[in-house]
Simulated assay, not measured.
Amino acid sequence: MMHHDTQPPAAAAHRNRQIWAAGLWDNNIILKQSLALCPLLAVTSSATNGLGLGLATMVVMVAANLLTSMAKGIISKAVRIPANIIIIATLVTLIDALLNAWLHPLHKVLGLFIPLIVTNCAILGRVESFASKSALLPSMLDGLAMGLGFTWVLTMLGGIREVIGSGTLFANASLLLGQHFAFLETTVIPEYRGLLLVILPPGGFLILGAVLAIKQKTEQVLAERRAIAAAAVTGAQS
């Protein structure tokens, strides 16, 4: 039986904002949970590759959360995890076949990392901890928010590595993603000879470490500002 969301509009809106904030920043798959680091380091040698893998993963997350939420009333708890894995594996197989058929150059570049989406702990984690216990709309939003959070980090890291490593941004976007994405291709530093280290996996570690440090410092500064503002309000009230 499908459960309908009966929360008041204000409460539902607040819950939706929390879902978006968690997926995009507060509980980001990479920046907070430190999951999916293997494809992160191997695939994000360019922004195009990061965007491609991120979008494929996002589609799987949204569909897996949707199907799990719809089926939660008919799947026994005893077999819920194996059933969820079957759902995810089926979706990844479909995505892999579609990419191979319609975006074959991108499929060749991403290679083994498309089937390995099945083993992404973040997908099974969201399906098990959220979608299997939540209504349809929140489950879809959670999958979309987490997927977008994963995608923007992959694309950003790929872009940083690509600019520093080769002086381009979204190189081969039209070849890998289709002609509609040709407008993304940019030469940021003309006649740049490149820095190979940044393109290789060790460079991924270095860039990821720098991004994590910036995130931690940003959150620290914001927390200090909130504490100062709260103290000022308390002092004014007293």
Rank of each mutant, 00 (worst) to 15 (best):
L94I: 15
A89D: 08
H104Q: 12
A131D: 09
G111S: 11
A135G: 15
A131C: 05
P105S: 03
L136S: 09
S132T: 09
E128S: 13
A135T: 14
H104S: 13
L116G: 07
L137A: 14
H104I: 00
P115I: 00
R80H: 08
N65R: 03
L116P: 10
S132E: 09
L103E: 01
L66G: 08
G111I: 04
L67A: 12
W102T: 08
K72M: 11
L137E: 11
A131Y: 09
A97T: 12
K133N: 11
L66I: 04
L94E: 09
G111K: 04
I87Y: 06
P115C: 00
S69I: 05
G73D: 05
M70Q: 14
G125E: 11
S69V: 08
N100Y: 06
I85S: 07
K108Y: 03
L66C: 11
K72S: 12
A71P: 00
L94D: 06
T68S: 10
G73Q: 02
L94V: 15
F130R: 01
K108E: 13
A71F: 12
T68P: 02
L116V: 11
T93Y: 09
A71M: 13
L110K: 02
I114V: 15
L66H: 01
A63I: 05
W102M: 07
P138M: 06
A97W: 11
I88A: 06
I86F: 13
I114W: 06
F113N: 12
L103N: 05
I87D: 09
S134R: 08
I74H: 14
L94H: 02
L98R: 03
A64D: 04
A97S: 10
G111R: 04
A63D: 04
F113E: 05
H107L: 00
C121M: 10
L67R: 00
L66Q: 02
L106D: 03
S129V: 09
A97D: 03
I117H: 03
L99D: 01
A83R: 01
S69W: 10
A122P: 02
N84E: 15
A78N: 13
P138N: 02
A122S: 14
I81Y: 12
G111F: 06
L91S: 04
I117L: 08
F130S: 09
L94M: 13
F130D: 09
V79Y: 14
S132H: 10
A122N: 01
C121H: 01
A89E: 03
A63T: 10
I86R: 00
L112H: 01
I85D: 05
K72Q: 15
A64W: 04
L106E: 07
L103G: 00
G111W: 09
S132V: 07
I88Y: 01
A135M: 09
A135E: 15
V79H: 11
L110P: 09
F113P: 02
K133R: 15
F130N: 05
K133A: 14
W102V: 11
A83G: 14
V109F: 01
F130H: 12
V118D: 03
L103F: 10
L112I: 15
L137M: 13
K108C: 10
A97Y: 04
I87Q: 03
A71D: 06
T119H: 02
N65G: 13
V92S: 02
G73T: 08
V118F: 04
T93A: 13
G125R: 01
T90R: 00
S129G: 07
A83Y: 08
A64F: 05
